[in-house]
Computed example of a mutant assay.
Amino acid sequence: MRRASYREAVEFVRRELVVADGTTVSYAVSDGAGPSVVILHGLAGSGREFAPTAGALRGRRVILIDQRGHGHSTRRPHDTSREAFASDVAAVISAESTTPVDLVGQSLGAHTAMLVAAWHPRLVRRLVLLESDAGGGTPESIAAMGEYFRSWPIPFADRAAAVDALGDEPLARAWVADLEERADGLHPRFDPDVMVATMGHVVTPRWDDWSQVAAPTLVVYADNGMFIEEQKAAFVAGNGNATRIDLAGASHDAHLDAFDAWVAALTSFLK
């Protein structure tokens, strides 16, 4: 184990778990009281971007998981199915906690968290889903996403060059902060082809699984997020244990660009 600083007021210990198919799942743990809060990032992200959220949960034990194919976890896992992602999270929870946890996810991480709560109900006390749906997307949109990631001029010479290429919006800043330093320059901590394969398994909606989630659930949407009102309303209506909060002036990555409102919604629900 090694100490890892996220330039926040919270100190983390990074740990690794090798799961049944040989994938290494990396995660960071902060000290604090239970029940633990487990947080899952979105596509092409990592647990690092939720370090400020962990700081706002000071006093609670927080676990930031790098989902397979992301961050410090195995970059090119053989299995990118939804079952594999959910199994990884269940394995980490089982290894790190003897009691149910509060499970939080954003975007892809929210979809994973939803499935963990459906398939492993004894592991989840409360569930928070930021910018979530039962599934969806199109092959065309997924292909376009892959082309965007492949268009990055890798490697970046330095972080200033990365900012020039990717922009200075909150999500771009999170990507730049998470770049991996190699001998030839800076590289993202994900592979575009793995991202495309991962999203290919999210296309099929999981309405039956969503309806089976028994944990009290907070669904958080951004007014400038990914989903239209009809999608938001249909998703929340799909589970009788779900309540909804909308964040004004926020994007799909509300944990980055509407931090105070996001933390207020999260901490109020987890109390």
Rank of each mutant, 00 (worst) to 15 (best):
A54S: 07
G137P: 01
G135E: 05
A110Y: 03
F235W: 01
L166T: 14
I63E: 01
A222G: 13
G34D: 08
R75L: 13
T99F: 02
L130N: 10
F235N: 04
E8C: 09
A160V: 13
F156Q: 09
S87E: 02
A86K: 03
L270I: 12
F269S: 02
G136H: 00
Q106H: 11
N239R: 03
A33P: 02
N239P: 03
H255Y: 06
T99L: 07
V203Y: 02
F50V: 03
E147P: 01
A110W: 04
W207H: 15
H201R: 13
I154D: 06
D193G: 11
E83P: 07
Q106C: 14
A261F: 08
R125F: 06
E140N: 00
G137L: 08
V163T: 14
V203H: 04
D164S: 10
A90T: 02
M195V: 09
R58L: 12
A54V: 05
G238V: 01
Q67L: 15
A144W: 05
A54I: 08
D260Q: 15
A165M: 00
A162Q: 08
Y221T: 11
E8G: 07
A261G: 15
D209N: 14
T243Q: 13
T198N: 06
A134C: 12
D79I: 05
A242D: 06
M226P: 00
R206G: 08
M114V: 03
V202S: 06
A248C: 13
A183E: 11
I154K: 09
S5E: 01
R244N: 02
V263T: 15
V25T: 02
R82H: 01
V37W: 01
V104M: 07
L266M: 15
G32M: 12
L186F: 02
L57Y: 10
T138R: 12
L166R: 15
R75E: 10
S268N: 13
V236P: 01
S107E: 02
G238H: 08
S36D: 06
N241Y: 05
F190C: 04
R68H: 07
V25M: 06
N224S: 13
R206Q: 15
T98F: 03
E230H: 11
E147V: 00
V220S: 08
I39M: 09
G105W: 04
A248V: 11
N241R: 15
W175D: 07
V29F: 00
V196E: 08
S268D: 11
V213S: 08
A250K: 10
G22N: 10
L108S: 09
L266P: 04
E147D: 07
D246S: 14
R75H: 12
V220N: 06
A183T: 13
D208I: 08
R58E: 10
W175S: 10
E147S: 12
D223N: 14
R48A: 11
E140V: 03
